[in-house]
């Protein structure tokens, strides 16, 4: 089945560019260093968010104005579009650990979500090998429920089956170190305990392409160390890792390539030393 879809997409890919049918016969020259296999290809990606209820001062949000706009057929003025990612292209190879840096709102998290296939592109495309997954299950958990129930719910949300959940359960409780609190609702947890349990659940699954958003290494010093070790282990197991962080030390330590995003575009892409030096200069 995998082969047949591969064939199909190959055929599809060649249809529009008719003169380029020689691709398979004479493969285009690889990037100079080595024949590395690409795992993630981002091709001129644009992501546009729709945001509701963001009226400017000129168009105040009262009912009369809303009616006038409707009568004048001005459409939906409260709807603003945010162009979060504007034409990003790059290729990630097997074994890469890519750090993504940039100011707040430069599109880092949006880019990660698009690579994970969770945000539909406005134009352009993301091609991946296997299913990239975002490290994080916060959205699936429910504060009113006990830690026990949330562990099960979170594991199912990540796509584990009942047997895997039973196998991982004790490990998750141990790793989070919350002890008997696992029987209390998560709403009674301190913020550190909540973060620890969430990280323990999220990191219980192995991934092909791993996407790590920042602010994961939370909790006390002990847990920080434990979670960094686990991220390191997951990185070794995964084929390709993307890491978003504001802590540049972490990126310099763990990544072999850094992409600097600025206002939704790639400002720089290269080895960590050069890019981070430029980034620090502003």
């Amino acid at each position: 089945m995998a082969e047949s879809t591969e064939e199909l997409s190959r055929v599809k890919a060649e249809e529009p560019g008719a003169p380029r049918t020689d691709v398979r016969v004479h493969p285009a020259p690889e990037p100079p260093q080595a024949p590395r296999t690409p795992t993630v290809v981002v091709d001129d990606l644009h992501i546009i968010y729709r945001v509701y209820g963001a009226a400017t001062e000129a168009e105040k949000g009262n009912a009369a104005n809303a009616l006038m706009r409707l009568l004048k057929r001005q459409g939906r003025p409260q709807m603003k579009e945010v162009h979060a990612v504007r034409g990003v292209s790059f290729v990630a190879y097997h074994g890469d650990a890519i750090g993504i840096v940039g100011r707040n709102g430069s599109g880092k998290s949006t880019l990660l979500r698009a690579i994970a296939g969770l945000l539909p592109p406005h134009s352009g495309a993301v091609y991946t090998d296997g299913q990239p997954s975002l490290l994080g299950v916060n959205a699936a958990l429910m504060r009113e429920l006990t830690g026990e129930r949330n562990i099960v719910l979170g594991c199912y949300a990540m796509g584990l089956n009942p047997q895997q959940v039973r196998e991982k359960y004790d490990d998750i409780v141990d790793f989070s170190g919350i002890g008997e609190f696992v029987q209390f609702p998560m709403s009674t947890y301190s913020s550190g305990m909540g973060a620890r349990l969430r990280f323990a659940i999220a990191s219980a699954k192995a991934h092909d392409v791993l996407l790590i958003d920042e602010a994961l290494a939370t909790g006390d010093r002990d847990f920080k160390r434990k979670s960094q070790e686990r991220i390191k282990k997951m990185r070794e197991e995964a084929g390709t890792v993307f890491l978003v962080a504001h802590n540049l030390d972490v990126i310099e330590e763990t990544c072999n390539r850094v992409i600097w995003l600025h206002k939704g575009k790639i400002k720089m892409d290269g080895d960590p030393k050069t890019v981070l030096a430029a980034y620090n200069k502003g």
Partner: peptide, 16 residues
């Protein structure tokens, strides 16, 4: 070469 073709050549699929 266009990225789409590079992706197709290595059997990568659309993420979404």
């Amino acid at each position: 070469e266009p990225l789409a073709e590079l992706a197709a050549r290595h059997g990568l699929r659309r993420a979404i």
